[in-house]
Design a protein around this nucleic acid. Structure first.
Lengths: 335, 335
DNA sequence: TTGTAGGCGTTATCAA
DNA sequence: TTGATAACGCCTACAA
């Protein structure tokens, strides 16, 4: 692999000259050297080493994105958009599993990235990443649902999950439902939030779990079966995510239960598929994509701008949005 | 940020000693220095700089994955699996848009990654990346559908798209279908392959396009409407991907066309959602996940093993698999 | 068991 | 307009 020296020797100038030409630094060289350098660089297929550059400049042009399940539709969409955005600013995207923040902390400490985007639930946890910032050039931003309060020390775009949950439950309550099953999946998640909101609306509710949710659709179908056996039987199902809801639709159909006549179903997330299942699913849209874009945009601008201004902590709150479609109706008579 | 020198000074030894201790190099130091070094490193929150290390070692512990649409279910699943695999070997994942190979070429040349996984259609194009390898430690592997022949010079896991297409068409032909519409989307893709295979089976076919496929489900619904207006009307729809097929199901349902009684539908891809739409979709499973895992596994082992053996070029061919479900049946009588 | 010295490839500062 | 020179942080012979 050709180094900057090879180019310099080939042209008969010093490495610094080559560096200046290639980076368009001021102290404009004579047009002739300029040309010869560019020419030699092209002919030698020269490409500056990113590690070497990063070492001396303290800048990697990498944004690390911490995201729990990049194979879920919303994170995946966000990732794809972030990818395009980063690319348009000359940044690369580094993926981090982000089960907790430890991996991102390492990335920051090891100087693998200039920007860290914490894109997962519990935005407020991103505050903890600030301690890992080891370089004034590094920026931390966050995007996702806030469980409690938004983060304090960083730039973040978020929504409030319990607001979305409430809008779904209010919709069901307004239709006349009183007994609702919450399809919770395997882990603990919004169960508490659900209970609190349900209580406020004086709804009877039952939380349904499942052992494994590796196949979310199957888990949804399973939980729907469980829900049907509850006594008294609930008149509506509220799923923790859209995949559970779509799976539940399938389970109910197999059990001969008509949706929405015999049973209402509400999803959570608002992924594209919800508009094309049968019947189209009533669900709550959560603005993951928009939050990610806002946060990353801000970070990229801060990193790209010539001014050495630090990105000011700030929060942008976006709204969830209830999308009423065809899986919700009043409960059957006599219920 | 603490450097190796800070640690050395704190303990009162030289930087090399610290380096040796931290990297477990032989020439075991005395247990006491060892302890004091580890202790100081922890207290100072020391973390070796990845760029500095990469510069001197020529190793980044990064795998770059080139993948067209990380928000499609199959690529996303593959990515998530690759992520876990990479992590378990101490590697990070760098995402590349990979519309063509130019971005990956730069990544290789700039020494941003030790491994490049070309994970998209036209596996054979990955051969071109070999020219960009600038370091004997770098490895290129590929996973995805081969359009023509498998790649020659690298390790690759692939399947043959036209075999999958053929299995779908054979299934339809065996059911008695003679007129088939191919829902092709906006771009050019498997159109040619489809035509060739259809001709072999003496099937009449019509290719349906759509202007935009940003919303694939909507595009599928649109194309289904178009297909219904064809004269004579086809008795089966074969979609280029599962999203188109699911959208088509929706469009047909809205038009009052019964599936599979009035119209058969076949998808392509075999994403999880196909088992949970209504009716469950007959489709062809393509082993993207498996291919990606095989290729990456090989690359990681080659990079991790102590032996300085280069990864030998080799190809693994996996099979597509027709999954017959509930959207295909013989054509209506008199057709 | 430890320290010294050199270099990885690049950029930046300063002097010419 | 250009060229020395000195970092950046780390690793690894080699010498002590």
């Amino acid at each position: 692999m050709a180094t900057i020296r090879d180019v310099a020797e080939k042209v008969g100038v010093s490495p610094s000259t080559v560096s200046r030409v290639l980076n368009g630094r001021r102290g404009y060289c004579s047009e002739s050297t300029r040309r010869r350098v560019l020419d030699a660089a092209r002919r030698l297929n020269y490409c500056a080493s990113a590690p070497a550059r990063a070492l001396v400049q303290g800048k990697t042009n990498v944004v690390a994105i911490g995201c729990e399940s990049p194979d879920d539709p919303h994170p995946a969409q966000m990732l794809a958009a972030a990818q395009r955005l980063a690319e348009s600013h000359g940044f690369h995207v580094l993926l981090s599993p982000a089960e907790d923040s430890s991996d991102l902390v390492r990335i920051l400490r090891e100087q693998r990235a200039d920007i860290v985007l914490w894109a997962r639930s519990a935005v407020e946890l991103a505050d903890g990443l600030l301690d890992a910032v080891s370089n004034p050039q590094q920026v931390v931003v966050a995007a996702g649902p806030a469980n409690t309060a938004p983060p304090q020390g960083i730039f973040a775009a978020y929504w409030i999950d319990w607001e979305g949950i409430r809008s779904a439950l209010q919709h069901l309550a307004a239709l006349g439902h009183r007994r609702i099953a919450f399809l919770a999946g395997a882990g603990q998640g919004k169960d508490e939030m659900f209970k609190v909101e349900a209580a406020k609306l004086k709804l009877q509710m039952h939380v349904v779990y499942v052992d494994s949710e590796v196949d979310k659709f199957a888990a949804g179908a399973d939980m729907a079966q469980h829900a049907l056996r509850l006594q008294p039987r609930p008149t509506a199902l509220f799923a923790r995510n859209d995949e559970f809801a779509i799976g539940a639709l399938h389970g109910l159909n197999e059990a001969g239960v008509k949706v929405p006549d015999d049973m209402s179903v509400v999803g959570y997330g608002g992924i594209p598929a919800t508009g094309y299942c049968h019947p189209p699913l009533t669900t709550v849209y959560t603005p993951f994509l928009e939050c990610g874009t806002i946060a990353l945009q801000a970070a990229l601008q801060a990193c790209t701008s010539n001014t050495k201004s630090v990105l000011q902590p700030a929060t942008t709150k976006l709204e969830t949005h209830l999308m009423v479609r065809a899986t919700t109706a009043p409960p059957p008579r006599g219920q």
